[in-house]
Design a protein around this nucleic acid. Structure first.
Lengths: 231, 231
DNA sequence: GAAAAACATTGATAAATGTCAATCTTGATA
DNA sequence: TATCAAGATTGACATTTATCAATGTTTTTC
């Protein structure tokens, strides 16, 4: 895990700064600068490890990460985190240790803001508390909704669902390079690898999808949407 | 939906008061008393309706409720809420309308605290903000964990899981009267009614469970736990 | 660059789950 | 109390999903 200097010295001047910090005054922004660490990691590295004590919250600047829960038998992927999102926010307030792993699925850059700093801002800035509440609610709402959406569907529908998710939510494009393996895709939508592959092959055969390795293109979004809703 | 007077006039004197309000001063407790409505509903009544504007947050005094999401094809039960819990907390901060239904599965008594009142306390009392953050985090963490736990298991394991849940989390007893129908049980653990019934019958035949209508008794907790973990 | 490991793909088959139909039980309603 | 509606239960069967095995492909490692 490499630590580099933050490209901008001060959070105040940071173009990546999270909307969570929009209500801070200059003094508070300086304090923030002093209580965060800029970190670079490569694909596959842990950003946060399940069970380890919570030292802070990570703000993802670049790259995608997965939030997972591990088990003797399998790994469950809870959600995919895109740049400009906070990760680990949930655990901070509900537990002294991280409940989940956060693992880079691309090379990532993030700022680790200390827990103490979050708590400080919380007591000094009411607007910050409100924004934090909103963020946390949104994040958990989204996580629960995705789980329910997956549970609702059978396998074809799940694959269609997650492909639409990557196209619409993550890449805003019908053409994208999937950052995760078939196994991870399976772990994300509660399936077996073989079934993921089989269904992807079907979608390709039916000219709904173009696949070359991890390069995906949705060539018939309408039919894919239909499968997502009814299949 | 009946509205009765609150047994105690003032929240200050309320034996049911949520730990969320532990940090309030007298003045704030008086304000709370003036901005909440005491409500009684009977089994089956809606406490909150999916899609309706959020007027406030319900604190459950008595009775159990289910949080659900409805769909053309089926109802998904997200979680069961026990007395002394807040419900609808998530949506308050993430959306102008309720994302879920909250429906009484027993006769219920609850206090509806206005959204405005929550927001007011939030800006006046920092400790309140922290406690609220903790509660919300705990609630959503628990909801996500249950969903993951269910997704992990096959049907026998799911049934065992939910029976243990009712025995340990809700009733703290191996003997309890299930407040929901077989269909609702199915909706709670992503199964079909027939399969729930079938597996319950198996558990009874194997002398793990005693069932008479909705009266349940777990007579072999060890084996049930084994099925929950491995079955 | 060769060997090994991990990943991807497909088919055959077993196991799990869903569907349909029939019957029985219970609770609600007139 | 008789009737009806909803819930519960079981069996037979269809469909979906998981497992196992074999093979090809890509990536990593030495």
């Amino acid at each position: 895990m490499n630590e580099k200097n933050c490209p901008g010295e001060l959070c105040k001047e940071c173009g990546f700064r999270s909307s969570i910090f929009s209500g801070l005054n200059d003094e508070q922004l300086v304090a923030l600068s002093q209580n965060r660490t800029f970190v670079c990691v490569t694909k596959g590295d842990y950003i946060v490890k399940q069970g380890s004590p919570i030292e802070g919250v990570a703000f993802l600047r670049k790259g995608l990460a997965k939030i997972t829960r591990t088990n003797i038998h399998r790994e469950q992927i809870i959600r995919i985190v895109s740049p400009r999102e906070f990760v680990g926010l949930l655990s901070v307030f509900s537990s002294p240790t991280f409940q989940y792993n956060i693992i880079a699925i691309e090379d990532c850059e993030y700022c680790m803001v200390s827990k103490q700093q979050i708590m400080d801002l919380l007591s000094k800035n009411q607007a910050f508390a409100k924004i934090l509440l909103e963020k946390i609610s949104q994040i958990s709402d989204a996580a629960i909704t995705i789980r329910l959406d997956i549970a609702l569907r059978q396998l074809r529908g799940r694959v269609a669902f997650i492909l639409c998710f990557f196209a619409n939510e993550i890449y805003q494009s019908q053409k994208f390079t999937l950052p995760i393996s078939r196994r991870e895709l399976a772990d994300l939508i509660d399936m077996r690898v073989e079934n993921v592959v089989r269904i992807l092959s079907e979608l390709r055969r039916d000219n709904i999808l173009r696949i070359e390795g991890n390069a995906f293109e949705i060539i018939d979004p309408e039919r894919l949407k239909w499968i997502k809703e009814h299949g």
